[in-house]
Design a binder for these strands. Structure first.
Lengths: 180, 180
DNA sequence: TCCGTCATGTAAATGGTTACATGATTCG
DNA sequence: CGAATCATGTAACCATTTACATGACGGA
């Protein structure tokens, strides 16, 4: 049984918004953190079991039989604050698109154009998804304490996506001048 | 023994530039691909051994006793092209800074300001490193086939870093208006 | 001679995904 | 009833880092 503080942090943090089942937890992470985080069932369920054993989350009765609503206990909240204070660790980068482009002379300019065009399309799709998220978040009551923070992470995605689009346009122009 | 096509791709691609020892391979990846790729010794050496067994790389005598210069064989180059053509897979995102910021109301505005300021400083450092890389790459002979591709990946880093700085400045302003 | 760097490798632990097995509930 | 979705969990596999062990070579 792995004891990933990364997963613990995400799970405890999500439960700090509201009690959830493991299933809903994964949906919530995909929906709200999808741009910069991910967890799979294979991580979430063992983590919940462990956090339950440690008394950091409490499992109440869910609406369906067999399902359990997990909520933060006081010591769970304390642990959450503790984990939040740890310096963020960034996973080592692995960008397959840029790796291929760096060795683009092996692949040829045409294939590289496709690579960059795909990346551009992904960034455009991301920007559209973020526009929806922004509208929904701006519709939240202004006194919701999470609201300004949610908007900041949305803005991070927007900046990143716009930069990706600008880079792709510039790069597609450069690639157009290359043979192959 | 893992058979990571990701690592194979990076190793074969790097050897396509010039023959190297495993040690030099890791240095080259850190220096030239550091912004978007990483490999550790624990990946590189087993990968080289396997690629040697498969006849994709040949091990010649290195300058020192016991060291071996690895170079691409013809079938190694074929395999490289094959791997390059596969669609790039992006590793699931895990941005610890944005995760903490999303749940910033748990942490408080002051700690969040620190988080964002650190991210800004990192982006500035990245931009400086990229300026050096750009100067060095622009000094390469213009008929070097890799040159335009190297400049494109450098530009990707520059766009991304500038976007991170702009976002950080905007976000630090927002955070300044928040209590705590 | 001793230290730093070059160099190769292995073992253990960790982190994570994927696929699978199982069953309840809801809705058409 | 049958299909889709909600829900929990496990097992196998894959990927990756870290720490360690070992030793050659060059220069102060």
């Amino acid at each position: 049984m792995p004891r990933s503080t990364q997963t613990d942090l995400a799970v405890l943090a999500a439960l700090s918004i509201q009690p959830m089942t493991g299933y809903a937890l994964r949906d919530a992470i995909r929906l709200h953190l999808g741009g910069f985080w991910s967890e799979s069932f294979g991580q979430i369920y063992p983590a919940l079991a462990r956090l339950r054993d440690e008394g950091l989350v409490a499992a109440g009765e869910g609406e369906r039989s067999g399902s359990s609503l997990h909520s933060l206990t006081p010591s769970g909240r304390a642990r959450l604050v503790e984990l939040m204070r740890e310096p963020p660790t960034s996973s080592p980068p692995r960008n397959g698109m840029l790796l291929r482009l760096f060795f683009g002379s092996v692949l040829g300019a045409a294939a590289c154009r496709e690579l960059v065009a795909d990346a551009r399309a992904q960034a455009v799709a991301m920007l559209e998804a973020l526009a929806v998220a922004r509208r929904e978040t701006e519709a939240e009551p202004t006194d919701l304490p999470q609201r300004p923070y949610w908007l900041m992470t949305i803005s991070a995605g927007e900046h990143s996506a716009r930069a990706a689009i600008a880079w792709a346009d510039e790069t597609l122009e450069s690639l157009a001048t290359l043979p192959g």
